[in-house]
């Protein structure tokens, strides 16, 4: 459990400081929600929420970037947070 907690923090840091700025360029936004085993749950919002690729493809990219930076083999699932307006 100690390793899982450490991984959660480092994953959140990677997402906040490295991946999120990249996503912001497209007008999108992501944030870390949780990790369970090797599955990382992400919440996607802003322009990501209205994108047809906000599914397996986007999850693939996030997982690839996380794995590149951590040397692990995480999977990623995405929950979409919609605004009251269509992006």
């Amino acid at each position: 459990m100690k390793n899982a907690a450490f991984s959660a923090q480092s994953i959140q840091r990677i997402i906040d400081t490295e991946l999120r700025p990249l996503v912001n360029v497209d007008g999108g936004d992501i944030r870390f929600a949780s990790i369970e085993g090797t599955t990382v749950r992400i919440i996607a919002s802003a322009a990501c929420a209205g994108c047809p690729k906000c599914d397996d493809d986007f999850a693939w990219w996030i997982a690839r970037e996380l794995n590149r930076r951590t040397g692990n083999t995480f999977d990623v699932t995405i929950d979409v947070e919609h605004t009251y307006y269509h992006h």
Partner: peptide
């Protein structure tokens, strides 16, 4: 419109 996305195949 339907083709967009940051990840492509």
């Amino acid at each position: 419109a339907a083709l967009r996305g940051c990840v492509q195949r």
